Amino acid sequence: MTQIETIPKNNLGQAVGKDLDNWTACPRPMRTTMTGRFCNLEPLVPEVHAAQLFAAFSEDREGRNWTYLPYGPFDSQEQFKHWLQESSCGDDPLFYTVVERRTSEAVGMASYLRIEPVAGVIEVGHIHFSPLLQRTPLATEAMFLMMQRVFDELGYRRYEWKCDNCNEPSKRAALRFGFSFEGVFRQATIYKGRNRDTAWFSVIDSEWSRQKRAFQSWLDPENFDAEGQQKRSLQDCFK
């Protein structure tokens, strides 16, 4: 029998949100490494990671990965390093670089941003996965490690993913990682001289235990054959 959730009401009989009297603000994300089996997420340090990231991003010969980012592409390693020094060393956004454990090479980056500890809301963004990282177990593990920190370590209530509504690969990735589509904010901003309608996705804390089990099942060594190919897809693990 389906249980019907009772909608809270105030003393005037008006419907109101769930009581959160015991809620306390979350800590801000730490500038510390997140360790996985395939990759580590290290706090981004331009002097350490710029050269490796520039080389990895240069594998994208046509520059397709820069299309939906509000910056880049960069003509030189020094130009890219300067941008990192100016833009990626603060606390919001808080940038991490994805380092492949097998090679110890930086192959991508991502960040937490729009961090709201009082409301327990945080966003993942500035995701730039080089061709060396795309469609590999590292990419999935990197997103899992960031989600795990948000929910298990920091206790946030809501984790957001936003992207240009024209960016079909990003929208597919959000759904693959278990985010729910919430809608499109039309004419949300302008970048690179273009309009951007922004697609919104989220995972909330009550959904996390199921998402976590799916990620752990997919990342389990038993889910990969001798050639490193998955036996079950992440979507199958969510079922």
Rank of each mutant, 00 (worst) to 15 (best):
I4T: 13
I7T: 14
L12K: 09
L12S: 08
G13H: 07
V16S: 10
G17F: 11
K18G: 00
K18H: 11
D19H: 11
L20S: 12
D21V: 10
D21F: 10
N22R: 13
N22S: 14
A25V: 02
C26I: 01
P29L: 12
P29Q: 11
R37H: 13
L44R: 03
V48L: 15
A50H: 08
L53E: 05
A55Y: 04
S58H: 10
G63P: 13
T67F: 12
G72K: 09
P73K: 06
F74P: 01
D75P: 00
Q79L: 06
F80L: 01
K81T: 10
H82M: 05
H82Q: 14
W83C: 05
L84H: 08
Q85I: 03
S88Q: 12
C89A: 02
D91N: 11
D92R: 06
Y96H: 14
T97E: 10
V99R: 12
V99N: 08
V99I: 13
V99M: 13
R102C: 01
T103N: 07
S104E: 13
R114M: 13
R114G: 08
A119K: 12
I127H: 01
I127E: 01
H128N: 14
S130G: 07
L133G: 07
T136P: 12
T136R: 10
P137L: 08
E141M: 08
F144K: 10
L145G: 12
Q148A: 11
V150G: 09
V150H: 00
V150F: 07
D152H: 00
D152V: 11
D152C: 14
E153K: 00
G155P: 06
R158Y: 06
Y159N: 02
W161M: 09
N165I: 01
C166M: 15
C166Q: 14
N167H: 15
N167K: 05
E168L: 14
P169V: 02
K171V: 02
R172T: 02
A173D: 04
R176K: 13
R176F: 01
R176I: 01
F181T: 00
E182W: 07
E182M: 11
G183I: 01
V184Q: 05
V184T: 09
F185H: 09
A188M: 11
A188N: 15
G193H: 01
R194V: 02
N195V: 03
N195L: 09
D197P: 12
D197K: 07
A199F: 12
A199S: 15
I204G: 05
W208C: 12
K212Y: 10
K212T: 02
S217K: 15
D220F: 02
F224E: 08
G228R: 09
L234T: 07
Q235F: 04
F238P: 00
K239Q: 15
